[in-house]
Computed example of a mutant assay.
Amino acid sequence: MLFEKTYGIDLGSSSVKVYSMIRNKSYIEKNMIAAKGRKIIAVGNEAYEMFEKAPSNISVSSPMAFGMIANLELQEIVLYSMMRKIDKILGIGSVMYFAVPLDMTAIEKRAYYQVANGHWLRKNRVYMVEAPIADAIAMGVDLENNEGSMVVNIGAQSTNFSIITGGRIIISKKIPIGGRQMNEAVCSEVRKRYNLQIGTRTGKRLKLVMGRLADQHKQARKVVGIDSVSGLPREEVISAYVVNAGIMNCVNEIGAQMKVFLERIPPQIAYHIAKEGIFLTGGSTRIPHIDTYLASYTGYSFNLSDLYETSSVTGLEKIIHDRELRKWAQPITQRKL
């Protein structure tokens, strides 16, 4: 159809990324929703502003958990709200390309179909693209003539390792460590060293401002938290070394799991990966020198993507515009589920 609306959608644990073909632009918004009982108060970035600040009778949460849809109804509300901001008149019969995790069950596939064909969004055609394939396309990996490539995506709540060869994923693994666990590790280190309790949003700010896995500088930031002993608010100057100690706990675990994963790979493919380098992407790769740190830990070189959390939706954008790449998108109908 000439005026058919086409979207590329990446539902992440931290944020929702949507590419609109008509506007030729990508949009990103926090995957958060604030509710008081059954009443929705705020969605997206507005809900994130209330995170860790809302009273006890208002719950602020993400409909996604570890890269999978945890609450179908709330996820549809978040997606619908975001798409209404992009296009005031959505209409019906749009085409939606979703970047999805690997090895989904029929129930999990049904959840993605229902998000696009539920109460608010209706009669949409749904295509699913495996997230590592979308990442690889975004980073320029040749999927057709591929002797072996490894894609690592460090997301908000999980890290995915995938080996692509001959145009398909042969081995993959997901571990429950990501940016949110790094934030919590920073909060834990601050609590141990300073007897100060801080929120995960403050932990995230410290991670982004002072987190450096190599070439560490003597930096410090003043934060406000709750004293663990007295229970009163207190200011404290936090050293960068404490922040980096928390981050390194998680990155070391990712590196250890990656070494175990690489040992499972056939030698011919491992040789090609060592020659080409491991492709690294995801929102949590914004930490400076994370590629250098992982390279020294694993012994492999890394190709760090500058797309970060938008790599999957950029891959979907390329698939939407290039008919040759659409063979990587699998149509999903209700009859198939």
Rank of each mutant, 00 (worst) to 15 (best):
Gly231Asp: 05
Ile278Tyr: 03
Ile269Thr: 13
Asn71Trp: 10
Val260Trp: 01
Ser15Ile: 01
Ala106Trp: 04
Met32Tyr: 14
Ser172Val: 04
Glu108Ser: 04
Ser312Lys: 13
Gln330Gly: 01
Lys17Asp: 08
Asn160Cys: 10
Ala111His: 06
Gly246Asp: 01
Gly255Leu: 07
Leu72Gly: 01
Leu304Ser: 00
Leu206Val: 06
Ile28Glu: 03
Val251His: 04
Asn303Phe: 09
Glu73Ser: 13
Ser61Cys: 09
Ile28Leu: 06
Val152Ser: 08
Asn303His: 11
Val18Lys: 07
Tyr80Met: 03
Lys222Trp: 03
Tyr271Met: 15
Leu304Lys: 08
Ile86Tyr: 05
Asp142Tyr: 08
Lys192Gly: 02
Glu253Tyr: 05
Val126Phe: 10
Val209Arg: 08
Tyr97Leu: 14
Ile226Gly: 01
Thr281Asp: 02
Val209Lys: 10
Ile137Val: 09
Ile226Val: 13
Ser15Pro: 00
Phe3Trp: 10
Leu11Pro: 00
Ala111Arg: 09
Ala256Pro: 00
Val242Ala: 13
Arg180His: 12
Asp142Ser: 09
Asn153Ser: 14
Glu235Arg: 11
Gly44Tyr: 07
Ala65Lys: 15
Phe66Gln: 14
Phe161Tyr: 12
Glu263Ala: 15
Ser61Gly: 05
Tyr194Glu: 12
Gly93Gln: 10
Pro288Asn: 11
Ile273Lys: 03
Pro267Tyr: 13
Gly211Pro: 02
Lys207Asp: 00
Thr165Lys: 06
Lys192Ala: 13
Ala116Thr: 08
Gly282Cys: 05
Leu206Asp: 01
Thr200Ser: 15
Val190Glu: 02
Asn145Val: 01
Val100Trp: 04
Leu232Ala: 06
Met128Ala: 09
Arg191Thr: 12
Ser312Thr: 13
Lys318Leu: 14
Ser26Leu: 10
Ile171Leu: 13
Gln216Tyr: 03
Ala329Gly: 02
Glu236Trp: 08
Val43Met: 11
